[in-house]
Simulated scan of single mutants.
Amino acid sequence: MAQKSGFDFFGFGSKPGNESEVREKFWRTAKKAARQIPFMEEVVAAYYCAMDKKTPLRAKGTLLAALGYFVLPTDVIPDFIFGLGFTDDIAVLTAAITTVSAHITPAHRLAARQAIADKS
């Protein structure tokens, strides 16, 4: 199920198959990580920032790289290891979000709060 966000997918027009696949992987991983990542709302806001066509390309690239690392099940510390699995993801996401925080807008944060409420 694709999340309706109001943001253009990567700013390159709509590609329904790719968009729904990316969104599905993101939300599946986000649900698994929600209890282990204390700043999940900020991660979801970063997701919406990366999807926003108004976000500068460099910021998108930084966020997409971090979010890609987040959704990959095989990384430095595999996500299935309870208690440790998302620690490397947290480090990568924290660095990316800190780097591009000026581009994460109140609209992205609002969309994140609404999406998390809808997913709960």
Score class of each variant (00 low, 15 high):
62 T>V: 15
72 L>G: 13
53 K>D: 13
68 G>V: 00
67 L>N: 01
65 A>Q: 07
73 P>Y: 06
58 R>M: 07
53 K>V: 09
76 V>H: 02
73 P>W: 05
82 F>A: 10
66 A>W: 01
82 F>W: 09
54 K>N: 15
89 D>Y: 02
91 A>V: 08
83 G>S: 08
78 P>Y: 02
73 P>L: 02
76 V>A: 12
81 I>D: 10
58 R>H: 11
84 L>I: 04
65 A>C: 03
64 L>H: 09
93 L>E: 03
56 P>V: 03
81 I>V: 15
54 K>P: 00
55 T>W: 07
84 L>Q: 12
82 F>M: 04
86 F>N: 11
68 G>F: 00
63 L>W: 06
60 K>A: 04
54 K>D: 15
77 I>P: 04
66 A>M: 02
65 A>H: 07
54 K>C: 07
58 R>A: 14
76 V>R: 03
74 T>N: 06
82 F>V: 13
60 K>V: 02
81 I>Y: 12
73 P>V: 00
70 F>L: 02
54 K>F: 11
53 K>E: 15
74 T>H: 10
65 A>P: 00
79 D>E: 10
53 K>P: 05
57 L>Y: 12
70 F>P: 01
87 T>L: 14
59 A>H: 15
80 F>E: 09
55 T>M: 11
68 G>E: 00
53 K>Y: 12
56 P>L: 01
88 D>Q: 09
57 L>H: 14
85 G>A: 03
80 F>G: 00
93 L>P: 06
53 K>R: 15
90 I>P: 00
93 L>K: 07
55 T>A: 13
55 T>G: 13
69 Y>W: 06
87 T>C: 02
62 T>Q: 10
86 F>C: 04
60 K>G: 04
